[in-house]
Design a protein around this nucleic acid. Sequence first.
RNA 1: GCCGGGGUGGCGGAAUGGCAGACGCAGAGGACUUAAAAUCCUUGGGGCCCACAAGCCCGUGCGGGUUCGAGUCCCGCCCCCGGCACCA
Length: 807
Amino acid sequence: MAHSYDPHTIEAKWQARWAAENVFAAREDLGKRKSYLLVEFPYPSGAGLHVGHVRSYSAMDAIARKRRREGQEVLYPMGWDAFGLPTENYAIKTGRPPQEITQENIATFRRQLQSLGLSFDWNREINTTDPSYYRWTQWIFIQLFKRGLAYKAKGWINWCPSCKIGLANEEVVDGGCERCGAPVEKKEREQWMLRITAYAQRLYDDLDTVDYIERAKVGQRNWIGPSKGAIIPFALAGEEGEGKEVVEVFTTRADTLFGVTFLVLAPEHPAVERLLSSLSNRDEVDDYVKAALKKKDFERTAEGKEKTGILLKGIIALHPATKDPLPVFVADYVLPHYGTGAVMGVPAHDERDGEFAQRYHLPIKQVVRPHDGSVASLPFAQDGVLVNSGQFDGMTSEEARKAIMDAVGGREHTTYRLRDWVFSRQRYWGEPIPMVYCERCGWQPLPEESLPLELPELKEYQPTEEGDSPLARLEEWVRTTCPACGGPARRETDVMPNWAGSSWYYLRYTDPYNNEALASSEKLAYWMPVDWYNGGMEHTTLHLLYSRFWHKFLYDIGVVPTQEPYARRTSQGLILAADGSKMSKSKGNTVNPDEVVEQYGADTLRAYEMFMGPFDQPVAWSINGLVGIRRFLERVWSLLERVEERQPSQEALTLMHRTIKKVSEDIEAMKFNTAIAALMEYTNALMKEASIPKTALAALFSLLEPFAPHIAHEGWERLAGKGALLCKEPWPQWDPAVLQEGEVTVAVQINGKTRATVSVAAGSTEEDIHKAALAHPRVAQALAQQNIQRVVVVPGRVVNFVVRERQ
RNA sequence: GCCGGGGUGGCGGAAUGGCAGACGCAGAGGACUUAAAAUCCUUGGGGCCCACAAGCCCGUGCGGGUUCGAGUCCCGCCCCCGGCACCA
């Protein structure tokens, strides 16, 4: 064979040409339909590109390439989410500046991505650690602050003693640090918080307006976790009956109010501290509260853990309806940050309260019975009909909830599991928070025109022993003047979490060099929203929620034109190691894309990852599968040797159009595996021909371009003439008329079992098909001894004889 | 416990309620070769029958059901993966 398939030469050639002619640059062409296709920008770690990145990027690349050729204006950009802990930890270890490490890693990632021939518009490359980028991240923070959505608060935070870093609730996994796994402790600290809870309901409701993979929607709904109920006041009194204060509880079951036999406060509840002095067992209570606060979150919340609590002696609560005195407890199973941090104990109708009541021998009073009148085993947690509830007896739970709430001065309330976002990190490698503290003026934002507040260079990156950012050591940087009064002031030394830069990056791609705004309103109006966003499942809760929150805020202040950032979200499945386990650096079972490209070529790697299995399912890596794709490309290549100027046969033409249809539809449906299978079938059919009609082969290269763009371009050029550029060619169209022509095979069934097939002209009538089936010798023979009861004909598909044996 | 996704050959997987197993991998047989690799051709769910040709039975996690016809729809279960989980 004179010219064997040599991917390296071909791939280098076409990558150079695409770059030189800037063919993938996105333009704002108002006359064209736009398509903003987004993939998650990578964190440029020292480990280099992962085959999982390749799966996501190749998939969207296929869609981008196809849509461009269909005449759409496509924006398919790439950038770097480069702030973050691994780089900082590496800097601590080696003493090298994170800036330098990041630059190196980015260079590696860029080279790797470019070696794959992905059709990114590299003119729009962005980097979250670039001051010209994070200037706008800081700007957004200031806008949040100005509108009361960023605030400093003292509170118990999740603290990782190993990373010496405060963690957002979301970063705690099974009670451990998301990054290092160390058990998370509680620590009291002043932190910047973002009031995402102010957007909870909108973030929840607007999920109905977007097209996300169901798992992602469910994840967000669970995370926001709205719960509708009532807030009900309980008055507290001393044992002599003198009033103390009012504690509000949150309940979704106001209908069970008459079943309340005790009250429970979270150890953190502010009333506990206020009441302490009037308790006869104050020392005991104090000890319990202190012990509870010391406990790690997962120790406190582990299910199945026995519920403990302590009675507040010297205090009672008054039942709001009956005025009966009720004991008041402090118990750590009540969470401080949910509802009001206080619950009414209804042991007959709540699992947890029941358990608690049993342990402390508290009365259990049933006030709801099942609708069907049966005897319920307690606790009975479902709705039913009220009993033992005075004037409310006989009402359904549903009716009673409102009636009782109104009767005792309660009010409707929705509470959320979602908590405000801890936005401070006591670290270096993040966006500096652009705030200063003045004794006289309090927290003041930097003037917007002074942004960016650049990260100063350091000699040492280790956080301080107290857990402060290493920036705290730079006294000359920390000391500054107040933007409001000009007096002495101190800078915030915490930096932002690495969710910050990724919460708005898709906006910057639309206008990456803008110095006046994060992006111009014209560019945003043209490109937003992102039409299709693909990324990993691991980011569908937090990253999506955070960026939706920022986006809605930016919408509210008139910066962006849409309520939602992403119209559609899909997720690729994980790529597993050959043995089905997770790939990880520590297990040493990762696959390096560079080696695969070196050995098999980028086209093989890309097409293989699209072929290996359904896109949204996890699949194990397989060298054999990779080899299979390489063989397929070799076969496609070999067809060039037998090409001839001639008309394809009717059969070949039909298959060609069928393949065009299949590949076109499958790409949009992300059924890449079956699209490639169709291309294989088409190739196999051409292989059998003595000579290959030029148009038939040209169509093959054309359809192959989204998956294996280099070989497709080379093949196309060889057929079309020197200089031809496939990615500028229109996407092939199928002709429905061609698909109609020819013969179709119809299955002949007897009692639903296939006994034969017959070939009939496409578009044959039911009668013709019926006759053709009867004419088949085997069918005739099989029906000889039978009475035909009924015949079902589905044109183009099947004919079914329903028979009974002749007596 | 709740939610989401799955269960089909030796393996990855395919199949608008209409010929189950496309396509790929592994395997078997053959051609080419001194030989091997590569490549090409044939075969390829299990079983029965069989010189051959053909034919028959069983088969999509399990049990029912709907239908002329079910991997696909309905009811009841089992198992695997992922997420959430003392949220009042």
